[in-house]
Amino acid sequence: MAQPISYRKALNEWPLYLLVIPSLVAVLTFSYFPVLSAVYHSFFDWRGGDAKEFIGFDNFTRAFSDEQLRYSFFVIFILVIANVFKMIPSIAVAVLVHRLVSENAQYYYRLLLVLPMIVPGLVTLFIWKFFLDPNFGALNAFLDITGLKTLLIWLDQTFLHWGVFRADAPIAWLSQPKLIIPSLIIWGFPWIGATGVLIFLAGLQSIGTDVYEAAELDGVGPLSKFFYIELPLILTQVRLNLILMVIGTLQGFGLQLLLLGDSGGPEGAGMVPGLWMYNRAFGAGEFGYACAIGLMLFVFILALTWVNNKFIRVQK
């Protein structure tokens, strides 16, 4: 802890304040000011320049009746749900690596898991965009070879009636509106987050081999081992990851921007709130309206954070 200090002594130590000023100025200018500016300008018809017109709550009433915005919240909701399930492989791999007896093997797997991180995220994303390409893409080739495409065609004809899986044409993942959301979900398969795995492994480290041996003697199966021994120990990390993931997904739009462009793909099928804000500001020049959208998203996320702090306390 920092030492308590008397006012008299603090007066003598005034140069200390100089040390905090650079950080403080940086943060006030680039973190606080933009938020306040967003609040202020959300009440204006503003195109980014000096001219602006006060229009009260018009931006917000417009937002509430904005079909594209409403749809974008629907998309982001689906993506959040999907991302919850996409955490499972990371947890599974962490648990399996931890259960290995050989420490050497554990070390090498850890190393291999971190390896993809040396490729910039952007490059991975573009490689995936290439995988989703209808003619050259790995995904379509895989579906063709395994015969899964036939299954998809059958599904389409009997249940979905989307008309997107057809025997005579390659599957156009990123140009069929109906396939945009599935593409956004499939992206990154098998969804291993190196950071996530390492976090879970760190949490698992506190389980000794004796616990496993005891469990083995009692004839505990691998699934029960997970639910009774491992999961309780990494629950904190799982929750933390979950919260960060939800917040990250809600405000993220880089993925959609790069895969689909700022219009969210054909018919705006992959539009998310952040991307709509970006589109309105930098595509249409409606900065005031964009501020209002950003602010709504902001309040939404802040409310979620508050609920989380209030009800789902993460134990330290």
Partner: peptide
């Protein structure tokens, strides 16, 4: 504070 509202005023 989520950073999402920042980007437009920041620009």
């Amino acid at each position: 504070i989520p950073g999402v509202a920042n980007i437009v005023p920041l620009f």
